[in-house]
Design a protein around this nucleic acid. Structure first.
Length: 495
RNA sequence: GGCGAUAUGGUGCAAGGGUUAGCACGCGGCCCUCUCAAGGCCGAAAUCCGGGUUCGAAUCCCGGUAUCGCUGCCA
């Protein structure tokens, strides 16, 4: 019985980024889809770092990717594995291909390699072969004496097919596939190695076989690489996995998302103050939809509903406005206890945090305050802005707010009177404040709105805040009265 | 250039032969109101083009166009 659980757990996927120093949006989406799929299937997620290009890899950059994954709440079960540490495995595989006739030694200097070019379309006659093959593949070295590289010997004629869960059955003509590199030549290597570093196509396939990957979920930029890899699986006597290629994420100009589109790394969104779960929800819906009208789905729901078959085949534009909308939705709908820790982190970052908020009554008060503030927050740092206005001694009045709500000459007296009325209140709560203010307005013959707006400016320094009486309760009587008294003469001076 | 993929409002997704082509973001308006949000209601806005197949096509087929990808001793 328990064996069936193991069966269900036989799905194995991997996320295999190159260490570019940060996790970018496209990579994050790939990681997320892998993760949603594998968690639903109760399978195994593997993290593998594709750092075979020794030139441009810095091991320390991997941490940026890991941070990004963790922020997004994506975990893995095995790894991280580093391809740079598995070189021998790839060399052995390349030699196996050589031995069984699926690869050849290529002596062409890199710049002079003729393969991959396409033959001129001659007369209608024999146009079967579309890719030029290098003479090395037939045992006729083009430049004997130099150190050779190893290339895959793509079959002449025929087709290579594979199953793609997103794009369906896909077929490529072998004559369109160039004899791709497996191993670099040893020539440029400082060492006296026979061969150089392995190439991408080789290392992915070898690792995916070795790690028993069942589903390769990756960007659609690899769709055209897939037949090469399928050929390699065969050459290595292995069964290809199921592929699932995800449509690419584009910038607003419909070009592939890149640095010049602004924020492309997930860390930038973290730093801007997006909630990880909102980001996750947004990303999940970029290229996939469960089929109904629901969009707000928390992690567990996404895991439950995700289907590879539902993935779109169309490249999609990253729409930051929609991401912002998701963020406000999460800010509002999340259980407040899920939000409070995020706000705490934010206030710690901006040095506004007070230890008394960590537990007990302080914690309760802090939680209530977060709850009060959150409908008006768009990004986490807005909490810092609010806190500065509410609780810090740097309190100051925004001139624009003042101009808008203190222009009535009656305001200074009203504020002064209100201060005393509030100071005399037997109890400090929403209704008491409400009644006191309205009674005063009635006595003075002014509309409550006038004083409410003026008071808001006086006690928070800005034109925008949560409903006034809630705000008063959260601020506390002492602060409210003090600020009202301070505001009254200021108002007089201006009137 | 060759090969491949894709094509529904500005954007993200629905509608897998028969709907007044639906939802959401954004945009405009109204309501609510104590400011600003949120929320509610209303509105403008789309099936790339051309041929087929069919009683009937956004949906299936072919061609064109456009876009993206691959075509590296990058991954």
């Amino acid at each position: 019985m328990s064996e069936s659980i193991n069966d269900a757990g036989s799905v194995r996927v991997r996320f295999a980024p190159s260490p570019t120093g940060y996790l970018h949006v496209g990579g994050a989406r790939t990681a997320l889809f892998n993760w949603l799929f594998v968690r639903q299937q109760r399978g195994t997620m593997i993290l593998r770092i594709e750092d075979t290009d020794a030139e441009r890899n810095k091991p320390e950059l991997v941490q940026g990717i890991i941070d990004g994954l963790q922020w997004l709440g994506l975990d893995w079960d095995e790894g991280p594995f580093y391809q740079s540490q598995r070189t021998e495995l790839y060399r052995a595989a390349a030699k196996k291909c050589l031995a069984n006739g699926n690869a050849f030694l290529c002596y062409c200097p890199a710049e002079k390699y003729v393969g991959g070019d396409h033959a001129e379309d001659g007369a209608e006659g024999a146009q079967v072969r579309r890719v030029v093959r290098c003479s090395c593949r037939d045992g006729k070295p083009s430049a004997p004496g130099t150190k050779p590289a190893i290339r895959f010997k793509v079959p002449l004629g025929g087709t290579t097919t594979f199953l793609d869960a997103v794009f369906g059955d896909t077929e490529f003509a072998n004559d369109d596939i160039e004899d791709f590199m497996l191993l670099r030549s040893g020539a440029q290597s400082a060492h006296n190695d026979e061969f150089g570093q392995p190439m991408y196509q080789l290392s992915v396939v070898v690792d995916d076989i070795d790690m028993r990957i069942t589903h390769v979920i990756r960007g659609a930029d690899h769709l055209s690489n897939t037949p090469k890899q399928v050929l390699l699986y065969r050459a290595l006597d292995a069964k290809p996995p199921i592929f699932a290629h995800l449509p690419l994420i584009l910038g607003p100009d419909r070009k592939r998302l890149s640095k010049r589109h602004g924020a492309t790394s997930v860390s930038m969104y973290r730093d801007e103050g997006f909630l990880p779960e909102a980001f996750q929800n947004f990303l999940a819906l970029l290229g996939w939809a469960p089929g109904g009208d629901v969009e707000f789905m928390r992690t567990s729901e996404l895991v439950e509903k995700f289907k590879l078959e539902g993935v779109s085949r169309t490249n999609g534009v990253f729409d930051k406005a929609k991401l912002e909308w998701f963020n406000t939705q999460y800010l509002q709908k999340l259980p407040v206890e899920d939000l409070v820790p995020q706000v705490e982190l934010e206030l710690r970052r901006s040095n506004l945090w007070k230890d008394e908020w960590a537990s007990g009554a302080g914690r309760e008060w802090f939680t209530r305050t977060v709850d009060l503030l959150r409908p008006r927050v768009r990004l986490l740092p807005d909490f810092s802005t609010w806190s500065r206005a509410f609780f810090s001694d740097e309190f100051s009045i925004d001139p624009a707010a003042e101009a808008k709500f203190w222009k009535d000459p009656k305001v200074p007296d009203l504020l002064a009177n209100l201060a005393e009325a509030l100071a005399a209140l037997p109890e400090w709560n929403h209704d008491a404040c409400d009644h006191a203010l309205r009674a005063l307005c009635e006595a003075e013959g002014v509309k409550a709105g006038l004083l409410i707006n003026a008071t808001r400016v006086a006690i928070v320094g800005q034109a925008v805040a949560p409903p006034l009486f809630d705000t008063m309760v959260v601020l506390g009587r002492e602060r409210v009265v003090k600020r009202l008294r301070a505001a009254a003469p200021a108002g007089v001076a201006r009137s």
